[in-house]
C-alpha cells in the first residue's frame, strides 16, 4: 500500500509546483557551494523579502490567467505606481494616516478593476488590449500626480515591511499566510470553483449555472486590489514611491504564474508554485550575480528559462 515508488513519482508529477521548489533548492545549493557556505542564510532571507512582492501580484495575475485563454492583466505595474504614489502623498509620512493609506490602496484597486472590466465588457475590447490601454491612463495619472514625489513612508509602514525576526521577514510570513488563504479561496469557495470552471470552458460554466460575468469582474478587481496593496507595501519597503517601481512586475507576475505550474490555457492553477517560482527567480538572479555574470547574461537566462518552462509544460490545445 505505502512506499510504492511509482506511486510517489506519479503523485509528484501531479504537482507541477514541485519542480520550481526543486529548482530553487538546486540553485541555492549551487550558490552556497560557490561561496563555500558564505551567506547562505542571508540569501534566503533576501529572497523571502523580495519574492514577497512578486507573490502578491502573482496571485492576482494567477486568478486572471485561470479564467481562460486571452485573459491577462497588463495594468499591474501602472496600478502599483498609482497606488504607491497616492498612498505616500496622502499619508505624508504620518503613522496616524496608515489606515487611510490602506483604504486608498484598496480603493485604487477597486477603481482600476472596475475600469478594466468596463472596457472588456462594455466596449468588448480583448482583455490584453483593455488592460494595456487602461495602464497607459493609469500610469499617466500616477506620473502627473506623483511628479517630484520624495515623501518618506510612515515609519510604522517602513518598519512593518522591513522588519525581520530571526532573519525571516515579517511581511513574508504574512504573505505566506495570505497565500494559504488564497489557496482556500481557490479550492474551497464558490468563487474559486467558478473561476476554475470558467477557465476550462466558459460556455459549459454558464450552462452549469455560474454567473460568468460577475466572476470575471470580481477576478479583475481582485488582481487590481492586490496590485494596489503591492504598491503600498513596496513604497514602504523601499522608503518611498517611485514611478517605475512597478515596471518589473509586468513580466514577473506572468512568469511566476507560468513557472509555478498554472496552465495558460486556464482552469488549472497553483498557489504554492507561485511562491516557489518567485523564490526561484530571485535566487537565479542571485546565483548569476554570485558567479559574476553581467546584467545581460542574467536577463538572457531569465528569458530562456521562461521559454523553456512553457515549451516543456505547454502543448495545450488553446492558443495565446
Amino acid at each position: 500500500m505505502t512506499g510504492n515508488l511509482a506511486g510517489i513519482l506519479r503523485k509528484l508529477g501531479d504537482k507541477p509546483w514541485i519542480w520550481s521548489y526543486l529548482g530553487m533548492i538546486l540553485i541555492w545549493l549551487a550558490t552556497v557551494t560557490y561561496t563555500m557556505g558564505q551567506g547562505g542564510g542571508s540569501i534566503i532571507s533576501a529572497a523571502l523579502s523580495f519574492a514577497t512582492f512578486t507573490v502578491i501580484v502573482g496571485i492576482g495575475q494567477m486568478f486572471v490567467i485561470t479564467t481562460g485563454p486571452g485573459n491577462v492583466d497588463l495594468s499591474i505595474p501602472a496600478t502599483i505606481a498609482l497606488s504607491g504614489a497616492i498612498c505616500m502623498k496622502v499619508m505624508d509620512g504620518s503613522n496616524a494616516m496608515l489606515p487611510v493609506g490602506v483604504l486608498i490602496a484598496l480603493g485604487t484597486g477597486i477603481a482600476v478593476g472596475a475600469f478594466n472590466y468596463m472596457l472588456i465588457r462594455v466596449l468588448r475590447i480583448p482583455p490584453i488590449i483593455a488592460t494595456l490601454s487602461a495602464s497607459f491612463l493609469i500610469l499617466s495619472t500616477a506620473i502627473a500626480y506623483g511628479r517630484g514625489l520624495k515623501i518618506k513612508p510612515p515609519p510604522l509602514l517602513a518598519d512593518f515591511t522591513t522588519m525581520k525576526i530571526a532573519g525571516i521577514p515579517l511581511l513574508a510570513v504574512f504573505i505566506i499566510v495570505f497565500a494559504i488563504l488564497a489557496s482556500i479561496l481557490l479550492n474551497r469557495t464558490l468563487y474559486g470553483r467558478s473561476v476554475l470552471a470558467i477557465g476550462q470552458n466558459m460556455r459549459a460554466a454558464w450552462l452549469a449555472g455560474i454567473n460568468v460575468e460577475r466572476i470575471r469582474y470580481a477576478t479583475y478587481t481582485l488582481s487590481a486590489i492586490l496590485a494596489g496593496f503591492c504598491g503600498l507595501l513596496l513604497a514602504g519597503f523601499s522608503g518611498g514611491a517611485s514611478l517605475d517601481m512597478g515596471s518589473e512586475y509586468l513580466l514577473a507576475s506572468i512568469a511566476v504564474v507560468v513557472i509555478g505550474g498554472t496552465s495558460v490555457a486556464g482552469g488549472k492553477s497553483n498557489i504554492p508554485g507561485i511562491w516557489g517560482a518567485s523564490l526561484f527567480m530571485f535566487l537565479l538572479v542571485t546565483m548569476l550575480n554570485t558567479f559574476g555574470a553581467s546584467a545581460g547574461i542574467r536577463l538572457i537566462m531569465t528569458g530562456l528559462i521562461i521559454v523553456a518552462v512553457i515549451t516543456v509544460a505547454g502543448g495545450d490545445k488553446q492558443q495565446r
Binding site: R188, L190, R193, N201, R203, A204, A205, L207, A208
Partner: peptide, 27 residues
Amino acid sequence: DGIFHLWSIGQNVTVRSLRSMVRGLLI
C-alpha cells in the same frame, strides 16, 4: 457544453449544487 475536462467525476457532478454545500464560507 458540458464537461469540465480537468475535473474529477465528482466535481463534474456537484458543480451545479455547490451553493447548497457551503458551510460558513467554505464548500
